Amino acid sequence: MARSMGHVTVAAVGRLRESHWQAAQEAYRGRLEHYTTFKLVEVKDAGGSSGAALAREGAALLAAVPRGARLILMSPDGRHMSSPELATFLQGQLETYGHLAFLIGGPSGFDPATAAAAHDRLALSRLTLPHELARVVLLEQLYRAFTILHGEPYHK
């Protein structure tokens, strides 16, 4: 798969405040940029679990991703995949749609309108993960998927 094959955007609610999460995020961002045009966008946490707060976060997420991108909601009720299955999924989606946008909600999740706008849903784990860790795990798994597609040894 050539680097120019597609674009990947990760849009997430909130900023990573701890330096160790920031360092991990930046490490994977740099690695992903070797394989795809990659963009990470953080939108403001609306500070609550009310319907209005979730709607503001959802609207900001949707506004932050390029028009026409294939929207993939990261959700505990999404499809579970192995790393090789994610690699196959990623390749197929990039070949078909060209631009993927992975949406990560805040600690309270997504409002119904944002969830309805998504084209697909994926889960990272059946376990409950802290929001910051979930973001880093997604970035790591995207990187792992690209190494699998390129036949590189990272994933072994």
Rank of each mutant, 00 (worst) to 15 (best):
V10F: 07
G47Y: 09
G105H: 03
T36V: 15
E18I: 01
D77C: 02
T96N: 12
A101P: 01
A101Q: 08
I72D: 09
H99Y: 00
A24V: 07
T96E: 15
M74D: 00
T36S: 10
E18W: 08
Q93A: 15
L40H: 13
V13E: 07
T37S: 11
I72L: 15
A101V: 11
R31Y: 00
E26L: 06
L90P: 05
G68A: 12
F89E: 13
L94V: 09
Y35G: 02
R17L: 15
A101D: 07
A46G: 06
I104G: 00
P107Q: 13
V8L: 14
Y28K: 06
S19I: 13
S75G: 02
R17Q: 15
D77P: 00
A59D: 09
L86N: 03
A11R: 01
P112M: 04
K39L: 14
H99N: 04
A24Y: 08
P107M: 12
P66C: 00
A59C: 02
M74T: 13
T37I: 03
G109H: 03
G14Q: 04
E85R: 12
L100V: 10
L54N: 05
E85Y: 04
P112F: 08
T88Y: 04
Q25E: 15
V65A: 02
M74A: 08
R31G: 11
Q22Y: 02
R79T: 09
R29T: 13
E57C: 01
P76G: 01
T9K: 00
G68I: 11
E26I: 04
M74R: 04
S83A: 13
Q22G: 09
S49Q: 14
Y35D: 06
R31H: 03
G14D: 04
Q22S: 09
V8D: 07
R29K: 12
G51W: 07
G105P: 02
F89P: 00
A23R: 14
A101F: 09
T88F: 10
R29C: 11
G47T: 06
M74I: 14
L86Q: 07
R31E: 00
S83N: 10
G47C: 07
G48Q: 09
T37C: 01
L100N: 03
G30L: 10
A27K: 08
Q91G: 05
R15M: 03
M81N: 09
Q93E: 14
L103W: 10
H20V: 11
L61S: 02
A55L: 13
D45G: 08
D111E: 09
R67L: 11
